[in-house]
Design a protein around this nucleic acid. Structure first.
Lengths: 243, 243
DNA sequence: CGAAACTTTGAAAAGGATCAAACTTTGTGG
DNA sequence: CCACAAAGTTTGATCCTTTTCAAAGTTTCG
């Protein structure tokens, strides 16, 4: 299982080395940990609310979501993660899950136990810094999500989300000719943005008729990025994609 | 300036040692850093959006807020911090501020330069873990804020915020007989919860007439905590107040 | 091919925003 | 210590965005 390193190079290491200037040896040491690759099917739970996982994962392929369910049965999706992310890295320091981590699409995940990862972080402070930084960028994304939901109109919220997804996927080489895959239904977008499915649908139609983007089942094609970003008041600073 | 330690014991160290089981020596080493105490007046900026601060702070007394301003001039408050918090600890790993940190009330803050703090974290991995954990709890608070805004009614949002404030202030000994001080105007609550001032006012009145709480200018008295928590669907798990 | 999942449409209802004005509290200078 | 201006709260009326409900299309996939 130790030769996972080659797969990582395309995703996690790409990010850590580009954005965080992680020394090569630290990256190699991280890859040298006993990772274990597992496949999860879409909609499967990876770590449930209230559980205390003993390991955390990095996404090799696919998307994950964090969500909670309210008393009225409605689900809120708090965030999503893309290849190269470590969506439950926080469990290294905060033992109990306060939300559920699930697979949005079919996923290929690489798991490592907390013990060896923590030991390596203690041994290599620059690796700890890089991973800490990753969790802080996640945090900045949550903060921005509060502003998105609190202050933007339905159409703007959707546009903002799509601008963010494009920027995050571009950073991990998942954009081809301005198109990218996002395995979401309109219901799911609603659960993420705090909007009804109907309103998502109407917002999509507006963005389409504005000729800002094309959306066909799971494929998104942004036609006019700068207008879309302008509409959404999207500024990628909070993603801290460059150091 | 080095004898700040005694003041810290009541706030930051209380939290780090209780919640994170931080070894005593690590706490002492943290206190031994060259902290510098500064007073900020209400509404003053501590670190502006786009800046690259070279230090970070711990709140000794008072409250801070993080906020951004939208194109229409509306301000969104993304989060607030209470005594014992380190509201810009993230700047240790993410250099550019993607929001503005400001003083909500008059504040007494203790600053330490990034250099010595980072060096100490590298030297004492358990301290790094404890501080990393603090930033992750902040992150959990942001995540929960997205759910609060996306899924709860105006009245519920306000109730949820007040439940959270009570729990956070209780953890740092700022509750007396169920009462606590929160230096907020109704306009500010609106900026935080994504609601108009009018709606905040009406929600307060509902909570008052339900006899769930009393609010008089800056003092909040929760009369029926369990009913309030129930109304708001508030579960303090995400604050991770105990390990 | 057919069932299930998802998208689209229309109409009505609700929650909250906005606008405008009156009222109350707070803090400051005389 | 009072007066007064500024800041903050409260109220009422109207408007608007989004939700809800219901049903008809459309796509996907076994």
């Amino acid at each position: 299982m130790h030769n996972v390193a080659a797969v990582f190079m395309d995703t996690l290491l790409l990010r850590l080395q580009k954005a965080t200037k992680l020394p090569l040896e630290d990256g190699q040491a991280l890859c040298g940990l006993p990772w274990r690759i597992e496949d999860y099917s879409a909609h499967a739970d990876i770590a449930g609310e209230g559980s205390k996982p003993g390991r955390c994962c990095s996404i090799l392929e696919g998307f994950t979501v964090r969500h909670t369910t309210l008393q009225n049965g409605k689900r809120h999706i708090q965030s999503y993660n893309v290849p190269g992310d470590m969506p439950d890295l926080h469990s290294l320091q905060v033992s109990t899950m306060d939300h559920t981590l699930g697979a949005l699409s079919d996923c290929k995940l690489a798991f490592v136990a907390h013990g060896p990862l923590r030991a390596l972080c203690h041994q290599r402070p620059h690796l700890a810094d890089a991973l800490w930084r990753e969790t802080l960028i996640d945090a900045a994304t949550f903060r921005t999500a509060t502003t998105r939901i609190a202050q933007l109109s339905a159409k703007q919220r959707l546009a903002h989300l799509l601008c963010e997804a494009e920027a995050r996927l571009e950073a991990v080489g998942r954009i081809q000719n301005g198109k990218f895959n996002l395995p979401v239904t309109q219901e799911l977008l609603g659960e993420f943005l705090g909007l009804s499915t109907v309103q998502i649908n109407r917002s999509i139609q507006e963005l389409r008729s504005d000729e800002l983007l094309k959306i066909s089942r799971h494929e998104i094609h942004i036609l006019d990025r700068s207008s879309l970003r302008n509409l959404a008041e999207f500024d990628p600073l909070y993603l801290h994609l460059s150091h």
